[in-house]
Nucleic acid binder design. Structure first.
Lengths: 214, 214
DNA sequence: CGATAATTTGACCGATTGGTAAAACATTAC
DNA sequence: GTAATGTTTTACCAATCGGTCAAATTATCG
C-alpha cells in the first residue's frame, strides 16, 4: 500500500524528515516573499527541487505546509519576549530584548516577513493564536513593566504600546529591508544598519524611559 | 471604433472618471489585503460592481491598476515628511510629524497596507522610486535633524534610524492592526489605541531625544 | 534473495487565472 | 434624426491553479 502519505506510520523515515525539511525551507522562501495567496505549490516544489505530486505526498495541501511553517515561526518568534524576566533589572532586560529582537530580524528575515505577510493580510490562519497565547504572554509581560514603573524604576508609560513599538522598530529592519537598503544605499552605510539601529534604539528607549545606567 | 479603451481621447468622459475611481477604490481594498500576486482581476471587478471585461476596458492590465494606485499612495504618503520644516523648532516638528503619521495610519490603513505589501514582497514595482525620490527626501530631512543635533537642540542620534523608527511605530498601527486589536481586545482598550499610541510615542521621542518643552 | 512498504513519476482533472474579440448597446455631437 | 464615438456584454482563449490517480520505481527488512 502507498496510502500512508507520510502520516500513517508512527515512526518517521529518514527520507521523510529530510524531504519535509527541504519543503519547509523552500516554502519559507516562497511564502515569505509572496504571501499565502500569491504563492503556488509549483513554486515551492521547484524551489525544493521536486515534482509537485511528490511534494503533495508529504503535505496534503498548501495550507498544511503554511500552517506548519507558521506554527514553528510563531513559537520561536516569541522566545525573546518569553525570556523577559520580571526579576531582572529594567535596563538589562529592555536592552537585551531590543538586541535579541534585532538579531532575529537580521538572522531570520524570512521568518519575520512570513509573519508580517500573515498579519498584514488579516491573519486568517492565526487569529486564535493571537487572541489566545500571544495576548496572554503580552498581558503577563505588560504587568511586569507596569510594576517597574510603579516602583519608580522606569518612567510611567503604557506597557502595551511600549511592546508594540519595540516590535515595530526591530521587525522593520527585516520586513522593510528593501526600503531601508534603498535609503541607506550610499557606500557602506547600509552594511552597518543593524549596529546603527541597535545603538539608536537602545539610546532612544533608555532615555525615553528615563532609565539611568548603573 | 471602440478601440480607444479610455486612453486615445484627450478629454476624459464623466463616465470614465467615475468608473476609474470606482475601480481604484475597489482595487485598493483587494490589493491592500491580498498583495499584488494574491489579488485577481475578478475580485477587483466584483468589488467595483462591474464585469471583468468592462474593468479591462478602463485599465488594460492588472499591473496598470496597481501602478496607478501605488503612484498615488506613494505621493500622499510622503506628505508629512515633506512638511517637516527645517526652520520650525524640533519639539513641534517631531511631535506633529508623529501625530500626522499616526493619523494617516488611522484614517488610511488600506493605503498603508498596500505600501507595506509592496515593500514586503521586495518592492518589484517601485524600486526606482525608493532609490530616487524617497532617498533624496530622507537625505534632505536627515540633514535637518543632524543640524538640530549639532545646535544642541536635540540629543545626537542617527537621523536615518530616527526616521525609520517613526515610520515603523506609526505604520505598525495600520499594518499590524489585527495583532494590535487582538492583544488589546479586552473591553475598550482597543478603541483608544490611537490616542494611547500618540501619548506613548510623543513621550518616548520627547524624552528619548532629550527635548524639554518650552 | 523476495516481499512488502515507501517514494516518485507522468498523465490528468475541473476550476480559476489574466486577457481578448466582436458584437450589442448607450451616449454624444451635429 | 443620424452618425460617430464611447461603453458594456457574451462568449471565449491558453495558461496556470490546487490537487488526484495509478502505475512505476526505490528502499527496507527478514
Amino acid at each position: 500500500m502507498a496510502i500512508p502519505r507520510a502520516a500513517k506510520t508512527q515512526r518517521r523515515t529518514r527520507i521523510q524528515e529530510e524531504k519535509e525539511e527541504r519543503i519547509l525551507e523552500a516554502a519559507l522562501d516562497v511564502f515569505s516573499s509572496s504571501g499565502f495567496r500569491g504563492s503556488t505549490i509549483d513554486q515551492i516544489a521547484e524551489a525544493a527541487g521536486m515534482s509537485k505530486p511528490n511534494l503533495l505526498y508529504y503535505f496534503r495541501t498548501k495550507e498544511a505546509i503554511h500552517r506548519q511553517l507558521i506554527d514553528r515561526v510563531l513559537f520561536t518568534w516569541l522566545e525573546p519576549l518569553r525570556a523577559f524576566d520580571a526579576e531582572g533589572n529594567p535596563e538589562a532586560e529592555i536592552r537585551s530584548y531590543i538586541r535579541r529582537k534585532l538579531e532575529m530580524a537580521r538572522d531570520f528575515p524570512r521568518e519575520s516577513r512570513l509573519f508580517a505577510n500573515e498579519i498584514l493580510q488579516g491573519a486568517p490562519h492565526i487569529e486564535d493564536e493571537l487572541k489566545g497565547p500571544l495576548k496572554e504572554l503580552v498581558d503577563e509581560k505588560a504587568e511586569v513593566i507596569r510594576a517597574w514603573a510603579r516602583a519608580g524604576k522606569i518612567a510611567g508609560c503604557d506597557p502595551y504600546h511600549l511592546i508594540f513599538s519595540i516590535w515595530a522598530t526591530t521587525q522593520h529592519y527585516a520586513d522593510f529591508d528593501v526600503q531601508v537598503r534603498a535609503v541607506l544605499s550610499q557606500e557602506s552605510a547600509g552594511d552597518r544598519r543593524f549596529e546603527d539601529a541597535a545603538r539608536f534604539l537602545e539610546q532612544l528607549y533608555m532615555d525615553g524611559l528615563r532609565i539611568r545606567a548603573g
